[in-house]
Design a protein around this nucleic acid. Sequence first.
DNA 1: GTGACTGATGAACAGTGTTCACCGTAGCAG
DNA 2: CTGCTACGGTGAACACTGTTCATCAGTCAC
Lengths: 261, 261
Amino acid sequence: MAADDTTAPVPPSPWERERPARDRVSTARAPLTRERVVEAAFTVLDRQGLDGLSMRQVAGELGVTVSALYAHVSSKDDLLELMYTRLFDDFAIPEPDRERWEEQLRDFARSVRRRLLSHRDMARISMGHVPFTAELLPHVESLLALFRAAGLPDRIAAEAGDLISTYVDGFVLEEGIWQDRAARQAGDDDPSLSRPDWREMAGEMQDYFAALPAADFPHLRALSGLMVMDSSDDRFDIGLEIILRGLASYLPDQGAGAPDA
Amino acid sequence: MAADDTTAPVPPSPWERERPARDRVSTARAPLTRERVVEAAFTVLDRQGLDGLSMRQVAGELGVTVSALYAHVSSKDDLLELMYTRLFDDFAIPEPDRERWEEQLRDFARSVRRRLLSHRDMARISMGHVPFTAELLPHVESLLALFRAAGLPDRIAAEAGDLISTYVDGFVLEEGIWQDRAARQAGDDDPSLSRPDWREMAGEMQDYFAALPAADFPHLRALSGLMVMDSSDDRFDIGLEIILRGLASYLPDQGAGAPDA
DNA sequence: GTGACTGATGAACAGTGTTCACCGTAGCAG
DNA sequence: CTGCTACGGTGAACACTGTTCATCAGTCAC
């Protein structure tokens, strides 16, 4: 709720790409909206992946020519940015509760991950975009509110959001890589029918680690069972917990010792 | 030194792309090596950025036709992977010293960042690659050795490397985004002469935050001075420190309390 | 000197993002 | 009802992209 009712208009930040002027469609004939373009882009993305997401494909999805898209979207980069923005459009960050800040942060990270996983290759799009746009700034604000309510020093609070977001993005991106690799390995021609047989690949992977020369790779061999994703969810939570504990160490009452530098 | 003398040959992992068979150049006439191709690719990358890195440009850099490249590199993806691998080729991770593990980790992260910064857009290439290749596995092993020597539980050690690497990658990638944006904003036509006037943009940014509606963005306004990179190095170290503290909390003698889940 | 081999060639293919002159239809002015 | 303007969509074009393949030129072994 904290992020939803921002009635005051946020001015566009100075580096935001200028959208084409024809924003208001006069409802003359065809209902080809920028929203419909973005929607079609998501459809293509889920079907073909980011590498298969071309303006022609999007146009085809809408039964329209490529050039028609450029009336509603100024470039492909612009389209990707719109997709990134729309992914987190109705995202809600709860009102800060200083007793439950860790749970709230866990929920935040998990639901970001869920959203990124909801569309193929979405992490690749998300990474490489900064949420400092008029639409996404409220979320940044809400996150900051959470950190500060928890009692984190300002210097830490200012970095924490970036740190967590980067972690989630990077983690999901890596998940996607493995998923793609498993899919490509399974069904080489038609990647759509190939159920990501994931487990098979994880096993292969684990076998590889276990077969490494024992003298040179003692630790990799010892941890081979933990390195491959037994369950991605568990791995995700562990990394997240490391970050949360690091943040918690800066809480005044925790008194975990001053930084040594 | 731990990573340098791995005399035993590491078998290629099962998912590694197969290189073209013509590996042994008979030194017949032209010294067009795979190494030279990669080198030229780096030259082009630094001059034109990742988006301007095309096979034709690389070929042109070598005074050779495009198709000639494909005798030494099986695809552009392969070339990028080779660049990624070569970036960390002679990377050395020190012998674990359980008293100084935090310093060692700081050094590790900082030198990874330095390497990523040494070539334009390198973080974009690095992200999206997994270091589980024959050439890079020794580094993973050395990192694991460091974590285990420090006394971290195996479950944590297995995630820590990924966590730190992802952090560095993500951080540098974001640095690159801002740098590009500053460059594009300054010299719109010739992006080479445009000194990344960075400070100007940081100021603009800060002004933007400060000018946000006070009622809706109290925290962003309050932290505006910390959100923009006053010095990227400081921001980097803070995020790194958060992670290190999180890791340290899992040390047995630290006794920071059991996880609450 | 001849044959085999190998590495470079250049043309081609299918596809990309983006632009622009043109066109048809819709709604309004007269 | 006619004429006109305006605008959304068209289709062709441009300059690229990654990748492949038949062909050629040079060097080595015999």
